[in-house]
């Protein structure tokens, strides 16, 4: 329908500021499952404001779909605010842990070199296994899997993505407006109407 929005799918980072409410995770997740959209990554954490939670959700979709999803999420009673951004608009990181047999690592690879070349650090070194940790973009954490695979990678796990929005000045000021019974024009500042492609605030 929309002529301007890019038609190709790409990764979008959806940031959701919410109240702390049992069942809200389910309510938000259902917005995706109902549309048969896979959530690639989901992280729930505290935000810059005490008591306000921050969801980071990553999906691979067209902007048109993402913008509609964002509005459906923002419609939920306990959701304060939703933003969505492409990877270019955020600083993002994922953390990964790798467990490998210490003897093989020590014998065949130089641990020091592995750490240095992959920006990793050893979290635990025991006689039987060593756990490495690295933080970075998907390619970086993926790369270390490849590196460690020949040395008998025992376990691998990667965390959800967390992202900071480059252009955001945080949520404190907005929240104060939300708490007023009669919010100023500012809280009702309507990105949705001002720049339609950016969707959307209230």
């Amino acid at each position: 329908m929309s002529e301007q929005a890019p038609i190709e799918k790409q990764e979008y980072n959806i940031t959701v500021y919410t109240e702390n409410h049992v069942g809200l995770l389910n309510r938000i997740a259902m917005i995706f499952t109902r549309r048969k959209i896979n959530i690639d990554s989901l992280n729930v954490s505290p935000s810059e404001i005490e008591g306000i939670h921050r969801f980071n959700i990553v999906i691979n979709e067209t902007e048109e779909v993402v913008s509609k999803i964002a509005r459906q999420i923002e419609k939920q009673v306990e959701v304060l605010k939703v933003y969505y951004n492409t990877n270019e608009d955020v600083i993002w990181q994922e953390m990964a842990l790798y467990k490998v047999p210490t003897d093989i690592i020590a014998e065949k690879a130089k641990v020091e070199r592995l750490l240095r070349e992959n920006g990793a650090r050893a979290v635990v070194i025991r006689k039987d296994y060593t756990v490495f940790e690295t933080t970075g973009h998907r390619e970086e954490t993926d790369n270390l899997i490849k590196v460690l695979q020949p040395f008998g990678l025992i376990e691998f796990v990667r965390s959800a993505r967390i992202a900071i929005i480059k252009g955001s000045d945080g949520f404190n000021r907005k929240l104060r407006e939300f708490e007023r019974a009669e919010p100023g024009q500012d809280a009702i500042e309507n990105e949705f109407l001002n720049s339609r492609d950016k969707v959307f605030t209230m």
């Binding site: 919410t18 306990e78 959701v79 304060l80 929240l175 708490e179 024009q185 009702i188 309507n190 209230m202």
Partner: peptide, 9 residues
Amino acid sequence: IRSYRPKPI
């Protein structure tokens, strides 16, 4: 409800 704005200005 602070997280709920039933109607806009």
